[in-house]
């Protein structure tokens, strides 16, 4: 397997909140490679958005502070490299597809203006010389790649004139403008109707494959994960509780949280039980000792007061749970 492009290792993030300290991320590790699509999935408040912000370097500090860990990008640690160097990567080598197509575009500028400006600033940082015509050409080229009908017309259009699905394409185009190597998609398509969502996800899939980009999706929608991702990280209360290849993870979920979460998703087959998960996500200021899922776990026992080990349960499939035994001979 190729070396990971993005390598987050043991990342812990603290938030100062009204005079108290909250550990919002606790030893998060994940890797993203060019080729297989990675997904980070979790519910509201699990820390997936904080992870995204930490990777993109847009965490507000204070209140946030990075307590431990590293974020490797192409072999270099983003957290220790000079700020200038890191800023140079943002929006170029690593870029992001924003979640909300309704608010991520500035309503008072045309699509063309907004996209051309992004190129202009990236060019300036990279020391590239490109004139106005060149920038326009590049914007139109990318608009065409995201299958926008009539890119010339869209170039001069204002966001208000476009539908939600079209704006989502603009946001994808925006992320691709400067030929990134890593693309982070925040809740791709979840603000759209399902029929439009299907189209957008297919588009994203094709674009990423054609460029052999490294893709990290951040989402709460397990259905989208199963359709889009090759490798899944499941997050709960600031920790990665399980990760593995998509098929294995959905076929044989090994952490009680993953099992319960998949169980909770309504099934098109009409066989849902609606058991749900008891309790709520813990208070980060005073999280449960040991396994953070312990208070809500139906299988909890004394061992769970210790931090659970990462148990390899299958090929590239790891669950952080005391219940699991290491799989015999992993291929």
């Amino acid at each position: 397997m190729s070396a990971p492009l993005l390598d987050v290792a043991g990342l812990s993030v603290d938030f100062a909140t009204y005079g108290r300290q909250a550990r919002v991320l606790d030893g998060v590790s994940l890797q993203v490679r060019a080729g297989p699509h990675a997904a980070l999935v979790g519910e509201t408040g699990c820390g997936k958005s904080v992870t995204l912000r930490a990777i993109m370097g847009i965490l507000k500090s204070p209140p946030a502070s990075i307590a431990a860990g590293s974020i490797g990008f192409d072999g270099a640690d983003l957290l220790t490299m000079p700020a200038r160097q890191r800023d140079g990567l943002k929006g170029t080598a690593m870029s992001m597809v924003f979640q909300d197509p309704m608010t991520a575009l500035n309503p008072v500028f045309t699509i063309g203006d907004q996209l051309a400006t992004i190129i202009k600033y990236a060019d300036r940082r990279m020391g590239v010389r490109r004139d106005k015509q060149g920038r326009k050409q590049r914007v139109i080229e990318v608009l065409d790649q995201v299958r926008m009908p009539d890119p010339e017309r869209i170039f001069g259009a204002y966001p208000i004139m476009l539908s939600g699905g079209m704006r989502q394409r603009i946001l994808i185009a925006m992320a691709l403008l400067n030929e990134p190597r890593l693309l982070i998609a925040d809740e791709p398509g979840t603000a759209l109707d399902v029929t439009t969502q299907a189209e957008i996800l297919a588009l994203l899939n094709d674009l990423v494959a054609a460029r052999s980009l490294a893709l990290l999706m951040i989402t709460h929608n397990l259905g989208v994960v199963r359709e889009m991702a090759d490798y899944v990280y499941v997050m709960y209360a600031g920790t990665i509780v399980e990760h593995g290849p998509t098929e294995a993870l959905f076929e044989r979920p090994s952490h009680p949280y993953t099992q319960a979460l998949i169980e909770c998703v309504p099934k098109l087959s009409g066989t849902s039980t609606f058991k749900g998960i008891d309790g709520t996500i813990p208070d980060y200021v005073d999280p449960p000792v040991g396994c953070r899922f312990r208070p809500r776990c139906p299988y909890r026992h004394d061992a769970c007061f210790e931090r659970p080990p990462n148990v390899t349960v299958g090929a590239n499939h790891v669950a952080a749970c005391w219940l699991r035994q290491p799989a015999e001979e992993v291929a």
Binding site: V194, T195, Q197, A198, L201, N221, L222, G223, V224, R226, E227, F250, I262, V265, K267, L268, S269
Partner: peptide, 17 residues
């Protein structure tokens, strides 16, 4: 089309689309 576009979490469901 609507049922066909629903992202699902198992092969069993996918077969129903």
């Amino acid at each position: 089309a609507l049922i066909g576009a629903v992202p699902v979490v198992s092969d069993e469901e996918a077969a129903l689309k």
